[in-house]
Each structure stands twice: as structure tokens, then as C-alpha cells.
């Protein structure tokens, strides 16, 4: 099938802010020729029912992701640092909420 555009339209990741005051959250991806078109298509594909008040589109190729194999070395060391959590510390009851 002779469709060069299908091959060449880059992939974009779509982030939607569901309401003012909340962060943008990743909600999916799509193919589009350029950023403007990606925004337009993101609007049609991901926000047909007022799911958002703002959209970001980012070329997927520009996202650098951590590798699954690095999971242990990146995140595991935090497991033995329980002193980073408030529940690590015993506070007398009479102090009340702290």
C-alpha cells in the first residue's frame, strides 16, 4: 500500500489536564504531521466529553524513559530508607496530631 504519510507521521504522546489546578496526565498517543495537528487530533480523540481543559502533545521520540532492567538499581535502594517516612518516628500520644 502506497502510503508514505502513514509511515512518516510521527508519534505524539498526549497529556491532558482534567481540570484547572490538577496536573497534566498521560492519556495516550497518536500520529500527526505536526504539533498543531497533534493538538487538534488529541482534542478529537481524547476529549470528546469535556475530559480536559488543557492538552500537551510531545513527540514520543523526545521522551527518555528509564529501562525496566534498571528498576532495581533505581528504585530498590529507597526501600531500606524507611526513615524517610513520617511513620518511622514515634511521637507521644499527648502531642496530638503532628
Amino acid at each position: 500500500m502506497n502510503t508514505p504519510a502513514l509511515r512518516d507521521w510521527p508519534l505524539w504522546e498526549v497529556f491532558v489536564r482534567s481540570k484547572q489546578g490538577l496536573e497534566h496526565k498521560h492519556c495516550g498517543s497518536l500520529h500527526a504531521a505536526d504539533a498543531q495537528q497533534a493538538l487538534q487530533m488529541a482534542r478529537d480523540v481524547y476529549t470528546r466529553r469535556q475530559e480536559g481543559v488543557s492538552i500537551w502533545v510531545v513527540p514520543s521520540a523526545n521522551i527518555t524513559a528509564s529501562a525496566p532492567d534498571d528498576k532495581d538499581s533505581l528504585f530498590e535502594p529507597a526501600a531500606d530508607k524507611i526513615y524517610r517516612h513520617p511513620t518511622f518516628y514515634e511521637i507521644p500520644d499527648e502531642v496530638g496530631h503532628m
Binding site: 504531521a33 505536526d34 495537528q37
Partner: peptide, 20 residues
């Protein structure tokens, strides 16, 4: 429908490259 939409996809890409 796919064939008839091809010129649209191609035009969008050409436009994007021109303005890149």
C-alpha cells in the same frame, strides 16, 4: 476511504515539513 484520504495525509506532512 483510505485511498481517497491519502492526499490529505500527504498534504499535512508536506505542510509540516515546510514549516518545520
Amino acid at each position: 476511504a483510505h485511498h481517497e484520504g491519502q492526499w490529505v495525509r500527504d498534504a499535512a506532512l508536506a505542510y509540516a515539513r515546510k514549516h518545520q
